[in-house]
Design a protein around this nucleic acid. Structure first.
Length: 272
DNA sequence: ATGACCGACCATGTCGGA
């Protein structure tokens, strides 16, 4: 079967529900993972997703900020939410699709919103950066987020808030001291990827040294002209599933829509 | 300076994003 999975930091799901609908009608992924829903679970726009053909919804939200969600055409056999770093700050939700969904194997999907980390890349003076580093360490050691589990497929997607490779940013040299591309974050993210046995699906389609971005600052007067982007959003897959990937799309067009999110969707398709 | 912004909230400024 064909399975398409999308991830998008929507920066308020209530504000941009029409844009989500437009993306779903245009790309029709089987599952959509959202970050920064900024929405308590009881105010999540469920009815809109049901109408769009996504009646299966897993939420981990809270009032005002952060928050993640998975909406799906297929039912979930299980939903899990993990509190990283002992904070209850709505940064993770996982769903499992059973073989009943048409899959030869069960599939577990983790959806993450990794802490941004504040301005100053010093864990001694910036508690937000210390939190981000601790979160990445926990991601590397958390057994549930290991890809290599016999007999099942796994995906780890989301806004990981790190652009780990040299060509994941517009200027490697100029961003070495900028949170999201400092060497310690990049190393910790790459370590988590290795430790979990994950494959980078996006870079399998667009290897370095090609530039690859999913985020452009709101502050640039003309984001497309400046093109000072970063690859903060990621799709990782377990090895067998990565080998079954047939397509990867960065839906850049959404960045030009009216009142856009500063992140754009990433969509991966698998033939399994 | 990449940066001239953007969203939620018991709002009219503050916090967080990155």
């Amino acid at each position: 079967m064909r399975l398409a999975v999308a991830t998008w930091n929507i920066n308020s799901v209530r504000l941009r529900i029409r844009q989500v609908a437009r993306l779903l009608s245009r790309h029709a992924p089987d599952l959509l993972c959202l970050q920064e829903t900024k929405c308590p679970d009881e105010r999540f726009p469920r009815a809109e997703f049901e109408q769009l053909g996504y009646p299966h919804i897993a939420l981990h939200g809270q009032k005002g900020w952060h928050g993640v969600a998975v909406v799906s055409k297929h039912p979930f056999a299980d939903v899990a939410r993990h509190r990283f770093c002992d904070y209850n700050d709505a940064r993770h939700v996982a769903v499992t699709l059973e073989r009943a969904a048409g899959l030869a194997k069960a599939l577990t999907l983790h959806n993450f919103y990794v802490p941004a980390g504040g301005d100053e890349p010093d864990p001694e003076t910036n508690v937000k950066f210390a939190h981000k580093l601790a979160f990445l360490d926990e991601l590397a050691s958390y057994p549930a987020t290991r890809a290599a589990k016999a007999g099942s497929h796994a995906l780890l997607v989301g806004d990981l808030n790190v652009a780990p490779l040299e060509h994941d940013v517009w200027s490697h040299r100029q961003l070495l001291d900028v949170v999201s591309h400092t060497p310690i974050e990049c190393e910790k993210l790459r370590h988590a990827q290795r430790a979990g046995g994950w494959r980078d699906v996006m870079r399998a389609f667009v290897p370095e040294p090609a530039k690859l971005y999913t985020w452009w600052s709101y502050r640039a007067p003309d984001w497309k002209k400046a093109d000072k982007g970063r690859r903060l959003d990621h799709i990782w897959a377990s090895p067998a599933l990565a080998g079954a990937a047939t397509k990867m799309t960065i839906a850049r067009e959404t960045r030009s829509w009216q009142q856009p999110s500063d992140h754009v969707p990433v969509i991966a398709t698998f033939e399994i």
